[in-house]
Simulated scan of single mutants.
Amino acid sequence: MTDTIFTNARIVLDDEVITGSVTLRDGRIHGVDQGSSRISGAIDCAGDLLIPGLIELHTDNLERHMEPRPKVDWPHAAAILAHDGELASVGITTVFDAMRVGSILSGKSRYNEYARKVTTELMELRSSGALRISHFLHLRAEVCSETLEAEMALFGPKDRVGLVSLMDHTPGQRQFRDLSKLQDYVQKKHAMTDADFDEHVAHLRSLRADFGDHHEAVAVAEAKRYGAVLASHDDTTTDHVAVSAGYGVRVAEFPTTVEAATACHERNIAVMMGAPNLIRGGSHSGNVAAQELAEKDLLDIVSSDYVPSALMTSAFLLSQLWGDLPRAIATVTKTPAQSVGLTDRGRIAEGLHGDIVRIHVLDDTPVIRGVWSHGRQVG
């Protein structure tokens, strides 16, 4: 491959921002140098920022492309390619595609298995070279379900499962401690009556009683079999965090209280919060605000959750809050990479993947001017 050289750039490193040049060669970062390059063909960044490609650990975006409207099943290959292209356009160069495992085949709110089929299609597109960025899997193990064990058995070490999260959406606890929030959400989505909702809640609670503990044990064991990192979801109390730590959890997705986030830090569990929460100024479920955790130095990783473009925006909001651009950028690059054991990306350093984003800052708003994945421009 021909070298790609960026010059006259402000380069965001681990602990500082330097003015200099970056060279990409054979898909990797070949050199990082202070001072401008005079090599013919170099890209003059004119003072723009260069940051590592963003790393997204939890996004529902693929599911949104697969079902753009309720009960509309979009062709999966087209959905995967659209999802891939959208993420590349907003600076995400590595994604852990979140897919639910564990289905409910009975009751008022049913949903079916899909993850194995979509994963096969995703891996086929990856093998063909059709995808612009790096894709791994994030299996969201729904313990309050009927089929989790059977669905997780269909995956193995070759499926690039990098993250398994323990999801427990039993009504009345964790994310939906406030049943009125759940009722508002479910009734709008599924057009349920009050009686339907009561039946729905009773059914989910019965599933948790019948299968929950066994499914948690299955998910922990299967994550180990895949070689995946384990994450908790919506930890609310110190007891929840203690259980998570006992399982070997390394990432806490969206803890709902300061109490839980504090306990996570005490046990060296990285705290992840959603970018929409940070940008909107609070949780749509009424839980702790991401900004509050950031102000208390309890925020380590940001996820775009359901708005891919929010990931870049959130990093620059944190930069304003903390007055520390490298620290803020690390929440969407270096720290998520380290938390899932990826040592070959997430930083601008010699020998790492050539995943680079060029950004012009306009009145504190990041404007993306180019995205490179493995040294190839993709956005």
Rank of each mutant, 00 (worst) to 15 (best):
L57P: 12
A78T: 12
C144H: 00
I43C: 10
V101D: 02
G53T: 13
H138I: 12
R116T: 07
K71R: 15
L105P: 03
E124R: 13
G129M: 07
H138P: 09
D60S: 08
S128H: 03
D97T: 14
T93L: 04
D159Q: 01
S127E: 14
S134W: 03
P52N: 10
S128L: 02
S127V: 00
P171S: 03
L166D: 01
D97S: 13
L62S: 06
A150Q: 15
R160I: 00
L166I: 13
S106P: 06
D97H: 15
T120H: 08
L148N: 07
A88N: 05
T93Y: 10
T93V: 08
V90W: 03
D168F: 00
G47T: 12
T59F: 05
H76E: 13
D168I: 01
D159E: 04
R110W: 04
L148C: 05
I104F: 05
A82L: 09
P70M: 09
C144F: 02
L154G: 00
T119H: 14
D73N: 14
A42I: 12
T119V: 14
D159C: 00
L81W: 00
M99F: 13
E113M: 05
G129R: 06
D60N: 05
Y111V: 08
V161P: 05
S106W: 11
A130T: 03
I39Q: 15
M167R: 01
E121A: 11
T119S: 15
S165N: 12
L122E: 11
L57N: 08
A153E: 14
L154Q: 15
A79N: 09
G156Q: 03
V72I: 14
L139F: 08
C45E: 08
A88C: 04
G35C: 08
Y114F: 13
E142G: 08
D97P: 08
G35A: 05
W74Y: 15
E63D: 11
I92D: 07
N112G: 09
S127N: 11
S109P: 00
R100Y: 05
C45W: 12
S106Y: 10
M99S: 14
L131A: 07
G156R: 01
G172W: 02
D73Y: 13
T120K: 11
M167H: 01
E124S: 14
T94M: 14
H76T: 14
F96T: 12
S103C: 08
L154C: 04
F96S: 12
L105V: 13
H135D: 07
L139Y: 07
I51N: 06
L166W: 00
T59P: 06
L57K: 11
E86D: 09
C45K: 12
E149H: 14
R69G: 02
K108Y: 07
L125C: 05
G91T: 05
T59H: 06
L105Y: 09
I104K: 11
V161K: 05
V143Y: 04
T147M: 02
F155Q: 04
R110V: 15
S106G: 10
K108L: 11
